[in-house]
Structure formats: structure tokens, C-alpha cells
Design a binder for these strands. Sequence first.
DNA 1: AGCCGCGCTTGCGCTGGATCAATGCACGGC
DNA 2: GCCGTGCATTGATCCAGCGCAAGCGCGGCT
Lengths: 246, 246
Amino acid sequence: MLVDTGSCERILHACHHGRSENGCADCKVRLISVCSVLELTELEELEALSHHLTLDKGQTLFGQDEPAGAVFNVIEGALRLTRLLPDGRRQVMGFALPGDFLGLALQERYAVSAEALGPARTCRFGREDFAAVIEAKPHLLRSLHERAGYELNLAQEQMLLLGRRTAEEKVAAFLLSLRDRYARTGRASITVELPMGRQDMADHLGLTIETVSRILNRLDRAHAVLLVPGGVRLIDLPRLERIAAS
Amino acid sequence: MLVDTGSCERILHACHHGRSENGCADCKVRLISVCSVLELTELEELEALSHHLTLDKGQTLFGQDEPAGAVFNVIEGALRLTRLLPDGRRQVMGFALPGDFLGLALQERYAVSAEALGPARTCRFGREDFAAVIEAKPHLLRSLHERAGYELNLAQEQMLLLGRRTAEEKVAAFLLSLRDRYARTGRASITVELPMGRQDMADHLGLTIETVSRILNRLDRAHAVLLVPGGVRLIDLPRLERIAAS
DNA sequence: AGCCGCGCTTGCGCTGGATCAATGCACGGC
DNA sequence: GCCGTGCATTGATCCAGCGCAAGCGCGGCT
């Protein structure tokens, strides 16, 4: 990435870290990311430690069991978080969307692999750097811990889904939960984008690709949803909610 | 609870909080609980805020969605952590053993119900009190967050199990993971105590009680395990590990 | 001792979702 | 325009685990 050596420190920073915009202060996901708990001065401090990282579809951000060299804020796009069984069976633990924080457990090694579902942008912090910032700012740790609690909650919801729901309930619950997450990040809509493929959904819900496909099409034929390219339109929300039985 | 008003503050504390022993300093689970990160002075501080709580078999410590009025250290016994679907289907999210901390997400409401599997003892801290202590002691929050990361890891392992493992793999993996947890708390042994019933295991593994029973007995007949009253003896560890395919 | 109740086991037929296989469809490269 | 490639759909068959129901064993109670 070419850098023009300007005199303004702000611009220098931006260039040095490969940013094209003005930095954290007008970051798209600032208010929905962990950074929302930081003051402007703290934000600049953190900005000095950060790099932007762009991923193409299918690229992996980090792999399961790799030493956790960095943590990330997702700015744009969506990532798939997976674990593998030695024989190749795969479980998609979840999908990371803009505003999500990756590596919040701050552990030695990554517990999952993270792969971009499409073009994506993240904000990267070196592990050591970030650990130091946390040491100095208890409220940031507090915020991370809150997020961890939220993640734990999602994980438990998912366990209930995987262990005790039928295929149809799983799919309905998944569509609704995805809608809720989009709503949280501002994009509330009856039309839910599905950046992941059928196989990813299947591996997330503990089903096969065929079952996911059949059920989506069955819901479509029953006019509960409308399948559209790259997403689903949730036509009959009450019915979906009844099916999901949440 | 009756209190005899002694003159010694230490004894007063002990009585006031219903303790029979000398307090946190020689607590059985001190070194394996969150308290292990505290200095002796901090320990006394925390002790002043704590109550011991004894539970009988089947008693519930707290219920799902109740306002989270307190957090707990498990001292002795085992608890079952469950979530319910409106129609009564149940998922056992996990089992709490001595040294475990309940309520570590510090959220407004409990995400699960906690019920004693047998006689149990816990150490209770009021939510407000505990929040205040955390505010003053970042390293305690740090420790909680580490635990949350560990829990998240367990939850993901469980998702993989629920979504992608066969019944036999589930049971084998469960027995091994239980053995590992006991080993962590000192009680390493080839004989694994099973304080929970078959239905609890089934609801933890996403199976029916019949399937759990059948598989345990099949493993017994195959001399991979030996069923004993109240537990299992793991005879052929390598085989179990091969089955669990972890 | 005898009865009861509860948790566990076991047999048997059934079914939801897996598996296997074929086909359809959109998009990019040449 | 044509082919290749990667996903998604659809049909046909299979089987792991479920659901039901009967039987068993043990501890507690009278």
C-alpha cells in the first residue's frame, strides 16, 4: 500500500494503518462495537495500535488452534466461525457480523476458524497491544465481559436448538435470530440477507444441506417465507415464531 | 438462623454467615475457584459479604429468567443447569461442580435454572455487593473473564457434540469430559461418579433416556466401561477416546 | 416380610432426517 | 454462444435413534 508522507499526524496514522477514512472517530461500527465504551482520547490511543484488514470471499482470518496473535473488530461483511472434528465433520459455531468482536476470550489459541463469507473488512489489534490497553482500562474489560456473557447466552440458545428442536424449528429459529441480529445493527427489515450458503446453515443447525434446502422450500411453498436470491423475505412472522416455539 | 452474639469479630462473622469452619482462608475450593486470585486481605473482605447456603437433593438454587439477585461459588455437591422450551422440552446446559462459579456473566437475569443433584453447599454473594468488589478489583474481573472464556469453549465443544456426533460418540465424549473435570479438581480416577440421572444425561446430550441407557449398557457389555452404582468405571480408555473421536 | 414407587433397562415397531443420486440453474471464462 | 464449475433442488431409499410399553431391581415404608 503506497503512502504519501504528509505532515499531519492524523493523516500519517491513517496511511500507516492502511485506512482510507478518518479513523476510529467516524468508524461505521463504532457505536455497536466494544469501542463504544471508549472516550475520544482513548479511541485515538487504540487507533494507533490498529490495522485495517480486508478479506476476500473464502479467505480465512485465522485458523482453529493457531496461536492467537491478534483480536479483531468486524467492520463490514460476514465471517463464518467453525470447528472441525478430526474426520472432517464441521460445526459452524456462529456467524460474525459488523460490530462483533473476534477473540474476546483472550485465550492463547483461537478456538475456532474464521473465514470470510464474502468481501469483509476488519480492524486488527495485536494481542499484546490489546492486552496492555485492557490492563489500563477496566471499563473496556467490563465491556468485553458483557459481550462474553451475551455470547454465552447465544451459545446456550444454540445448544437448546441443536439438542431439542426439530429440523423445521431449527430453520425457523435461525431465520428469526438472524433477523434480530440485523435489527440490532440497525438494518431492521423483513428481508433477511443470507450471506452464507446452504451447507453453512446446515453445519450451523446440525442438519444436512438437503434438509435445509427442503425445509426452506417447504416454508416458501407454505407462504411463510419468500426465497429471494441471496436471502429470504419473512412473510408470515407470527407463523415462523409459532414454528420456532421460542 | 439463630446467632449467638460472641465478642470475637471473626467468630461473629462466621456465625452471622452460618459457617461452621474458619472461613475463606481454609475453604475447600479456594484454590480452584475464582477466589484463588485474591490476596488474604481481599479474601476477608469478600468473606464479609458471603453466606453459605446448603441445598438438598432436587432443591433449586435459582430459576431461569429470575432477576439475578446473587452469584455463587459451588463448594460441594453438583448442580444441574437447565433451560426449558415452552412446551417442556429441556436442555441441560451443563453440570456445576465444586469450584465452579454460577452467574459469571453478571447479567440482569439468570440464563438457566440451577438445581442440586444431591446435597450441595454454595457460597452466596449478593449481586450488588459482588459488583462493587469487582469494580474495585480488576484482577477479579480478569479471572471471571478467563472463566467465561473457558465456559465459552466448553459450550462450543458441546455444540459440536450436539450437532455433529452420533449417540455413541456423545456418551463416550461425555464420560471422558466428566473425568477430565474431576481430574482438574483433584479427584483424578478411572471411576467416574455420575451424580446425575439418565434423564439428565439424555437432556445434556440431546438424546432420549432410552438411548443413553442402551449405549451405556452396550459399552458395558463390550467391556469399554463397567457400570457401577452411582457411576462408571472407565475400563478401556483408549477405546473410549477412539469412539469419542476428539 | 411384603408392598410401593421410582429409576433404569430392554424389546419392538416407527419415523424424521440422513444418504445416495440425478437434475437444475446461474455465473464467469474463453 | 458454449462449456465448466459450484451451488441448490428434488426424488427415492435407508437407518439411527425415538416412542411406547413392559419388565426389573432396589430402597423406603408400613
